[in-house]
Structures are given as C-alpha cells and as structure tokens.
C-alpha cells in the first residue's frame, strides 16, 4: 500500500518527529509508514489523515 504522507508533511512543513508527536506514535512508525514498509491500523491511518488535514482516501493508495 502506497501513501502520500511525505508529500502532505512537506506541504505543512512538518518533520517526522512533529507528525509522530501529533499522532501519538514513535518517530520510527512514521519513517516506516513513509517508506511503505508498514501498513497502519485504521485508527492510525485516520489519525495521520486528521493530522495532515486530509482524508484516508487522499493519503493512502489501496491499489496493489
């Protein structure tokens, strides 16, 4: 599953650490999310989308 977290993060000038603090996860989780190496739970996906002022559909690409 691909995502646009890095793109949205850059749009709001947030570091990975800033985003991690906003969402309430560790920085490594954001790193692995951006590298498409970790699939978040629905709750986490929702929190990340909320922190980046977008929707889950906009942020994540569910196509294989």
């Amino acid at each position: 599953m691909k995502n646009r977290i890095k793109e949205f993060r850059a749009k709001y000038d947030l570091t990975q650490e800033d985003l991690a603090k906003k969402v309430g996860v560790r920085r490594e989780t954001i790193v692995y999310l951006e590298q498409n190496k970790y699939n978040p739970s629905l709750n986490l996906a929702h929190e990340v989308a909320k922190a980046l002022k977008t929707t889950i559909d906009e942020l994540f690409d569910f196509r294989d």
């Binding site: 991690a20 603090k21 996860v25 560790r26 490594e28 989780t29 970790y38 739970s41 709750n43």
Partner: peptide, 14 residues
Amino acid sequence: KDVKEGMPMEDERS
C-alpha cells in the same frame, strides 16, 4: 531519549 522528547515509549508498531 524518546521520553525526554515527549514521545511515547511504545505504539501499535512496537
């Protein structure tokens, strides 16, 4: 280091 910076010690991934 994480606790000093206000990060959680564990999350869903850990």
